[in-house]
């Protein structure tokens, strides 16, 4: 594995240099928020960030995506498949938790029987550069409870770790190695590596927020009807903030939009928190209240995903904890479930 050292102030320059030839998504400061956005000439990448407000899943699974187009003919509408064009893209500076989310999303979108071409094409064309958390960004971070680590190569092609004086760049995959030319020529020595290991250990210990994510699985298996479920949702506004901010939430809606002779079929984010999510044409709704919807959200992340893919669909980024307008805290919910 190729390893190099780069100067700390070189990072912005590298991202900008890449942006001249490739599409580079990087954290950019926009007013009060840090958002992942494609770099343009006048957008300055901002790597001194804690974590981005939005999850970088939108690079592979955008809020709205055209699945196909169609046009009217005398005999009715005929469609033309939307070309799956995704140029070479670099996702620069994602946190390890978010990179972990890509591994989880792969399990769903890239299954043996049904392959989601839209997601896969973009995923294959994108090189993920992780900026490891030498210091955990937030007190709400709980990645270590859900199989993550603050310094981790999970889901990454290149990992950058702040080892104090410099960044250590590790090229994990061949895809990552292809971009090595942007990272200078200074080879990393064993000292840098030891330092990185120390930092990784320290960072791991610094994550104080813990949830019994694995312990709740057997409890969830048997407590679908438990009265506990009626106690979480009271103050829930039924907005979709938690799911829209979540790096692993992937539910979507498919709808058609037509105007005069042209139209498109789009898919857009949907949320299990919305009452209409499961409402059938007949009016019947299997998830009739926010109680059932919350149960679904918790179950999907901590039981169903484990059943189907043997992985917890939560990366511990804490976005839902911080963004929830009424402070419904998934950490507390999991904690409470573990005591049932």
């Amino acid at each position: 594995m190729e390893k190099r050292l780069i100067k700390k102030d070189a990072l912005v320059g590298i991202a900008k240099k890449m942006a001249e030839e490739l599409t580079v998504w990087a954290p950019v400061k926009k007013e009060d928020n840090v958002l992942f956005t494609p770099l343009t000439k006048d957008a300055e990448p901002f790597f001194a960030y804690l974590n981005s407000k939005n999850a970088p899943k939108q690079v592979f699974f955008p809020h709205t995506e055209t699945l196909m187009k169609y046009t009217r003919t005398p005999k009715g509408m005929v469609f033309s498949a939307e070309e799956n064009k995704a140029g070479k893209t670099v996702l620069f500076g994602v946190r390890p938790c978010d990179a972990h989310s890509f591994v989880l999303l792969d399990m769903l979108f890239d299954q043996e029987k049904y392959k989601d071409q839209y997601y896969i094409t973009k995923r294959n064309n994108t090189t993920v550069i992780t900026l490891a958390c030498a210091e955990p960004p937030y007190a709400t971070c709980f990645c270590t409870s859900v199989d993550g680590e603050p310094v981790s190569a999970d889901g990454a092609d290149i990992v950058l770790t702040d080892i104090g004086s410099e960044y250590l760049a590790e090229f994990i995959t061949p895809k990552g190695e292809k971009l090595a030319k942007y990272f200078g020529e200074t080879k990393a020595d064993a000292v840098a590596e030891t330092k990185k290991k120390e930092i990784a250990e320290k960072a791991k210990k610094a994550i104080k927020s813990k949830i019994p994510a694995h312990e709740v699985k057997p409890i969830l298996d048997n407590n679908f009807e438990h009265p506990f479920w009626a106690t979480i949702h009271g103050k829930c506004l039924a907005c979709g903030t938690c799911t829209y901010m979540c790096p692993t939430c992937h539910c979507f809606d498919i709808s058609d939009e037509a105007k005069a002779s042209d139209g498109v079929r789009i898919r857009s984010w949907d949320s299990c928190m919305f009452p209409l999510f499961t409402k059938e044409t007949s009016g019947h709704n299997p998830r009739i209240s926010q109680k059932e919807r919350w149960r679904q959200r918790v179950m999907h992340k901590f039981k169903y995903y484990v059943d189907n893919f043997n992985a917890i669909a939560c990366v511990g980024c804490g976005r839902c904890v911080m963004s929830c307008p009424v402070n419904i805290d998934i950490r507390k919910i999991i904690e409470d479930i573990s005591k049932l």
């Binding site: 926009k30 928020n33 907005c239 829209y244 307008p325």
Partner: peptide, 12 residues
Amino acid sequence: EKCIRCNACRQA
């Protein structure tokens, strides 16, 4: 353009 259509404003 900032809006992500999460409907939180409406719900609150």
